[in-house]
Design a protein around this nucleic acid. Structure first.
Length: 204
DNA sequence: TATTCGATCCAT
DNA sequence: TGGATCGAATAC
């Protein structure tokens, strides 16, 4: 299997994100078919990207080769994952937002006791990680060379129809339709606009 | 060193 | 709609 398409220039990361739909992710006995992703361009180009201000301790793997997992913690309790894309140094990435469990259903249910139903097992970026049994230890591991806990597998069948819209929870670049999902798939998360937090203390 | 706030999830 | 919960990023 060749994964060279993951190396497409950072300017084409939206196209790479679309391509990822339908691909499968397998880890710790559970397989998920990707149904929802978001594209993030690198350095400077995309104010919503975790890499847009340059290298930091958290985002350093985004500047490395494609096919690596960039895992980050959010709200002190959840983990989300991106596939690093593009040539080295460009820091493009695709956030894995949702998927449908296609293998290891029993294990998936055990890992997600709060799920409302099977459609909800991986319906969200942190849920996807939980269902696959992945956390911060997956940071910087490869999806494409078999050395990491998770692997990327080609689609069994191409997705029927792909729709696009604004990214979830992103304030800047709200006009950009860089969220992609499989039309009519029940595992796609519901769109939530970013809500600005209310100020608790007045400005001095 | 101090403060702010998030590419979320869940129960209400 | 609001609370949980903590570390990275930024402000000082």
């Amino acid at each position: 299997m060749t994964y060279s398409w993951l190396d497409a220039p950072a300017g084409d990361v939206a196209e790479t994100a679309r391509t990822l739909l339908g691909w499968r992710l397998v880890a710790h006995g559970v397989t998920v078919r990707l149904t929802e992703v978001e594209a993030y361009s690198g350095l400077g180009l995309d104010p919503a990207s975790h890499a847009h201000r340059g290298v930091t301790g958290r985002n350093q793997v985004m500047f490395g080769p494609a096919g690596i997992l960039y895992v980050y913690q959010i709200y002190g309790m959840h983990f989300c994952a991106n596939v690093v894309c593009g040539p080295e140094g460009e820091a493009a990435a695709v956030l894995l937002r949702a998927g449908a469990v296609v293998d290891g259903l029993e294990l998936a249910r055990q890992r997600r006791p709060a799920a409302r139903g099977d459609d909800d097992l991986a319906r969200g970026p942190a849920k996807l990680m939980q269902v696959l049994g992945l956390g911060k230890e997956a940071y910087g591991t490869s999806l494409v060379d078999g050395t990491g806990p998770a692997s990327l597998l080609p689609p069994l069948s191409p997705p029927s129809q792909i729709l696009a819209g604004p990214r979830v929870g992103v304030t800047s670049a709200h006009d950009l339709a860089w969220r992609f999902w499989v039309a009519d798939d029940p595992s796609v998360s519901s769109y939530r606009r970013h809500v600005p937090r209310v100020r608790t203390r007045p400005n001095a």
